[in-house]
């Protein structure tokens, strides 16, 4: 607790390894805070890692980085989450995004299940409807892509528009991006079949062609699909 004992001591005495969660659990504080990650000492020890000297390259890199204008400060733009389902890259407005989670088990609901509606999922204690966008949008099955990148995780996306909430699994989340409205283009006619009717516009992101789902159309279509 002594403020002056921070930093250098950590290397000599890593309490979590000795008496903490990775040690013999003898630390009296554990009763209160359960896990070492809740302990100030532990966090401070972690932050001591940032007390290392930075390289000149790091300095140069950030000097360069900060000269760029923040995207949010650009003109009219919207924030979207970009994800992949099968081989298609899709985007959805972040404004109507509640959260993303790891894959959770889907509880089938007898009689109500069809090829799009898969069941219910427990999100923060609430049961929400889970749909398979792949089946809903009738995408072709995924080609056997080599799974080289270990950093690709399947996730679940929770959307929320005016209290209407749905959950659907995605194969990969690229991240949240801000795109200028002017970058949006009309979807090509040839694509405007049944799934593409839900697509409001198309934009390029890192040489990927991404289709922006229209939130109203999607929710309307989902509602109708479930209703039927």
């Amino acid at each position: 607790m002594n403020q002056r004992s921070r930093g250098s001591n950590v290397e000599l005495f890593r309490c979590w390894k000795q008496i903490g969660i990775f040690g013999d659990f003898s630390c009296p504080k554990l009763a209160e805070i359960v896990h070492c990650r809740n302990c100030n000492e532990y966090n401070r020890a972690g932050r001591s890692l940032f007390d290392r000297e930075i390289s000149d390259e790091f300095l140069k890199e950030w000097t360069e980085n900060l000269t760029g204008i923040k995207e949010s400060e650009a003109l009219d733009s919207i924030s979207v989450i970009v994800f992949r389902i099968k081989n298609e890259w899709l985007a959805y407005k972040a404004l109507y995004l509640q959260e993303t989670t790891n894959i959770r088990s889907v509880h089938r609901v007898p009689l109500r299940t069809n090829n799009a509606f898969k069941g219910v999922v427990n999100i923060n204690g609430e049961l929400l409807l889970c749909v398979s966008m792949a089946d809903f949008l009738e995408f072709a099955p995924e080609e056997d892509k080599e799974k080289t990148d270990l950093m690709i995780y399947k996730r679940m996306v929770v959307i929320n528009k005016m209290g209407e909430r749905y959950v659907f699994p995605v194969d990969e989340i690229l991240g949240i991006y801000r795109i200028a409205l002017c970058d949006l283009k009309e979807p090509p006619i040839t694509l405007s079949k049944s799934p593409t009717t839900l697509i409001e516009g198309v934009f390029n992101l890192n040489e990927k062609k991404v289709g922006l789902l229209g939130e109203d159309k999607l929710i309307h279509a989902l509602k109708r699909s479930l209703g039927s």
Partner: peptide, 16 residues
């Protein structure tokens, strides 16, 4: 932030 702290601790542990 806590997550970052944990990562850092892990890094320190690996280093040791």
């Amino acid at each position: 932030r806590r997550l970052a702290d944990q990562t850092a601790v892990a890094a320190i542990d690996i280093e040791v």
